[in-house]
């Protein structure tokens, strides 16, 4: 396991390096001079120079890149143009809200997907399977910027059951978590169904049944455990998508997380903050993928020896 861990961590290093490089290049994709775009052509030359110095754009690109890299270990992602605060401090303040939303959505998705996937697999070809298939397809096809407003329309406007947006209580969490978790729940349901169907067809399940175990026990105690391994991989990979999806969901529900901060930074053309938010979300995704791989290797020793 230690060798696998080392190999996997070493593999993540160039990925992190590449992610940092792409994020650094983002501001250099600006069509024209970033300073002029921010201040307008009519700004005083002194103002432009000051901002150029502040954004470290007055030095050659390679020096800027070296500065950017050397600042990262100290947590220096630059200074927000809007608030004049360090970017990392701004993100740090918003991060717990995003984490809470992402974790709750994932938890809800698992709660929905597991029983639904098992039901669909054990009742293959019957109405429950078809219904679950249709529900999954609709949920996978409805983007969160459609689903969010529709849920608000139903539960806040029509039924007056839940708040339109905001943060603070469990009731505020329900609609954003449902919006963000629906796609993931659909994907997991399909995955649980497919994976369980494959396991149910294997000999050890037949053998367990032959030894007198009820079909229910053979499926739930034996097949499901093995079927969950690919589900863990999909769960890990989807967590990144949930973090990215939080950008739109947090905007819809005025949820004070990193996603909303990113949109506010875009509106204010606060490029260091845009860079910081994109970098933090991407690095979290790399970390979650790494953790998922390690967890899978822990659960299935075969992976370690591949």
């Amino acid at each position: 396991m230690r060798r696998y861990l080392l190999r996997r961590v070493l593999h993540a290093v160039p990925v992190v390096f590449g992610v940092v490089t792409v994020v650094f290049l983002l501001v250099h994709l600006l069509p024209g001079d970033p300073v002029e775009i921010l201040l307008g052509e009519s700004a005083m030359p002194a103002q432009k120079e000051e901002l150029r110095r502040e954004m470290r754009l007055d030095r050659p690109v390679l020096v800027q890149y070296a500065d950017f890299l050397s600042g990262l270990p100290r947590g220096d992602l630059g200074t927000s143009i809007r608030s004049r605060e360090p970017v990392l401090r701004e993100i740090g303040r918003r991060f717990p809200a995003t984490l809470l939303l992402a974790a709750t959505s994932t938890f809800v998705a698992i709660l929905v997907a597991l029983p639904l996937g098992v039901l669909a697999a054990t009742r293959k070809g019957r109405p429950a399977d078809y219904l679950s298939g249709i529900a999954s397809m609709v949920s996978l096809s409805v983007p969160n910027f459609c689903l969010g407003p529709l849920l608000v329309l139903l539960f806040s406007v029509q039924l007056s059951l839940l708040p339109v947006g905001g943060y603070g209580t469990a009731r505020h969490l329900v609609l954003p978590a449902a919006t963000l978790g629906t796609g993931m729940a659909a994907l997991l349901t399909r995955m649980v169904r497919a994976s369980l169907l494959e396991e149910i067809g294997k000999e050890y399940v037949t053998s367990a049944a032959a030894r007198g175990l009820s079909r229910r026990a053979a499926v739930l105690r034996h097949a499901l455990r093995n079927a969950l391994l690919p589900v863990v991989t999909v769960l890990g990979l989807s967590f990144g998508a949930v973090l990215a999806g939080s950008v739109i969901t947090e905007t819809i529900f005025s949820w004070p997380g990193v996603g909303r901060l990113l949109v506010q930074a875009i509106d204010a053309r606060d490029y260091p903050l845009v860079q910081g938010c994109v970098l933090v979300i991407a690095l979290c995704t790399v970390a979650v993928n790494l953790a998922t791989d390690l967890l899978c290797a822990r659960l299935d020793p075969r992976i370690r020896y591949e």
Partner: peptide
């Protein structure tokens, strides 16, 4: 390697970043 780096940007995150700076 290039694919691994680009896949680290989940969903439309990178597209959001690029569109944000390019308009």
């Amino acid at each position: 390697g290039v694919c691994d780096v680009l896949m680290a940007f989940p969903g439309i995150l990178l597209a959001i970043g690029i569109s944000a700076v390019r308009g």
